[in-house]
């Protein structure tokens, strides 16, 4: 059995059905991400695992034991919350030591572990400061240290970085991933940011309206979205109807809709050499958007079908507005939904 197992989890808040038949396994030592839009039930599932919320129906297992009705403090789970949750009346040292003191460890050992953990999160010099004297990012790192220092069986991170600016956030993503791998802590990470999920996860579980829409490695989720929702949420997929796409590209992709990543479309002024499995259509460029490292050209085909194509930006714009171009793409990269 997997290290953590959710079995047919249902959760109601009054008449609001928030979690719908969730089945989910997490392997030991992995970092898995619950990814999904706001309000889809990610935090609720996490809180059910923590014991802060009771499931309406279903079973939760951790390390071979059923923990569905165990009180939070006996589950051996550490958690970092979305908002800052350090104890304001305690110094950084006392915050981090809190869980260790409850375990009645010897003073010297507590002190050593606290210092070691603060070293890992890079806040050794803040040890005697108070939460109000720290920046948001520092506070979250202390919260991380506080949760990890007790060596919990599982670490739950509920959007711990959402209140932190972009640059620090990127650094912390890498930091958290590094610490998690170094200590081998099984971790569940909640986010609504797909890039964050891609960077950090062994596995991503894509949530939609209280259900798991798709599970897979970051690469699988990114390159093979299974549903239209997955394709909308992940990457920057073009999602034309299958009928339109097949007409324009003379193809026969099955399904209702077609998902095409903008980076698999190649633009050229000359018609590319015909090739087995290469789809080509001619169009016109009405506009483009610069993303810094790449330029996203809109391409308008006959009959009003418009798709985006990404071109890596070297030192000049390859095409201007109004230019006619050929768009080509490999047929086996096109996903029918």
């Amino acid at each position: 059995m997997a290290y953590i197992r959710f079995e047919k989890i249902n959760k109601f808040f009054g008449s609001n059905h928030v979690l719908k038949d969730i089945d989910l396994d997490v392997e030991k030592g992995q970092l898995v991400t619950l990814l999904g839009p706001s309000g889809c039930g990610k935090s609720t599932l996490l809180r059910c695992l923590a014991g802060l919320e009771q499931v309406t129906d279903g079973h939760i297992y951790l390390d071979g034991q059923e923990i569905t009705d165990v009180v939070p403090r006996r589950r051996g789970i550490g958690m970092v919350f979305q908002q800052y949750s350090l104890f304001p009346n305690m110094s950084v040292r006392d915050n981090v030591a809190y869980g260790l003191k409850l375990k009645k460890l010897p003073k010297a050992e507590i002190s050593q572990k606290v210092e070691q953990m603060l070293e890992i999160v890079g806040l050794s010099e803040k040890i005697s400061q108070y939460p109000a004297q720290l920046s948001g990012g520092q506070q979250q790192r202390v919260a991380l240290a506080r949760a990890m220092v007790t060596a919990p069986k599982v670490l739950l991170l509920d959007e711990p970085l959402s209140a932190i600016d972009a640059l620090l956030r990127k650094n912390l993503q890498i930091e958290i991933r590094r610490i998690q791998q170094q200590l081998g802590i099984t971790t569940i990470f909640v986010t609504h940011d797909q890039d964050e999920a891609m960077v950090m996860s062994d596995m991503i579980h894509l949530f939609h309206d209280g259900r798991i829409e798709q599970s897979g490695t970051p690469e699988e989720i990114y390159t093979r979205p299974a549903t239209k929702f997955a394709a909308t949420f992940i990457g920057n997929y073009n999602l034309p109807s299958a009928a339109d796409f097949n007409r324009v590209f003379h193809a026969d992709i099955p399904g209702q809709d077609v998902a095409v990543r903008p980076e698999i479309i190649t633009l050229s002024r000359e018609a590319p050499k015909a090739e087995e499995g290469l789809l080509v259509a001619e169009g016109r460029i009405p506009s483009h958007i610069s993303h810094g490292n790449l330029i996203r050209f809109a391409v308008e085909f006959d009959g009003g079908l418009t798709m985006n194509a990404d071109v890596v930006y070297e030192n000049k714009l390859d095409f201007g507005e109004g230019d006619r171009v050929f768009a080509s793409l490999k047929k086996d990269l096109v996903i029918g939904l």
Binding site: L52, P72, R73, I77, G78, S85, L86, F87, Y98, A147
Partner: peptide, 17 residues
């Protein structure tokens, strides 16, 4: 002035009643 439920939950997760 303090987010009571949040702080209590944080303490609970650390093993406190």
């Amino acid at each position: 002035a303090v987010n009571m439920n949040m702080l209590l939950e944080a303490a609970e997760m650390l093993g406190e009643s």
